[in-house]
Nucleic acid binder design. Structure first.
Lengths: 111, 111
DNA sequence: AACCAATACCTTGCAAGACAAAGTACCAAA
DNA sequence: TTTGGTACTTTGTCTTGCAAGGTATTGGTT
């Protein structure tokens, strides 16, 4: 049991660095609203919670990487659909490079 | 120029999650002291500064992942050589798994 | 002896970010 | 009109990265 807690910490730590990257990757494929992003990331094993995601989306929007529009929901309150901007795609390019570099670096350290 | 600053931020963000992992990877190969760890990581493109590394080493030592011994230096003050412990190797195992999982997850999200 | 440069280690204060938890709001069906 | 489901938002706490400044040891120079 204790081991599982520890394992979760390790994974959580590593996820932090790539969260923004994952959001942009997802939104580059299709627009989405926060709750659906959480579901998608959970399916992909990348757990995020609301208290993390909402501020993050707002930050990325303020940086001009994302924009949003309101859209009615078939059930419940309207949804805030986020879409990636041109600037966001540029940033995604950078992140692709950065990610590739990190993966390479780790391989190098491992030898 | 602005782009470079941004690029650095992106890289810094991603490095964060794997720093502890890198330390354990290095120390699993051979004992080392803080300054030499900084040099090695810099060579591997994984920039760390003293204010980050010292607290991190102390944290890992307090978690029982590392231990240290003093050793005289050919020049200058004595060095604090860190060595990985059995518990540290267990943790490294976990981190290897976690890292592998993250890499796979990103690939999945990319499709 | 006094000073300096190089090498090491350590601490402080700030800022960013992850997350748990609690709160607000909308809608439809019972 | 109350309940349950969906969705968005905020607050407070804790951790962590890092710039900047500080302390200590050694060997060579003046």
């Amino acid at each position: 049991m204790e081991k599982n807690v520890n394992t979760e910490n390790v994974r959580a730590q590593m996820r932090k660095g790539v969260l923004e990257y994952c959001i942009l990757l997802l939104l580059a494929k299709e627009d989405a609203y926060a709750s659906s992003i959480i579901t998608k990331l959970k399916e992909a094993n990348m757990i995020v919670v609301e208290g993390t995601l909402y501020p993050l989306l707002i930050r990325q929007k303020n940086q001009g990487l994302l924009q949003y529009r309101w859209e009615e929901s078939p059930q419940g309150p309207p949804r805030k659909y986020y879409a990636i901007t041109d600037k966001g795609r540029e940033q995604l390019e950078e992140m692709n490079n950065a990610w590739h570099e990190i993966v390479t670096t780790i391989e190098n350290i491992k030898n």
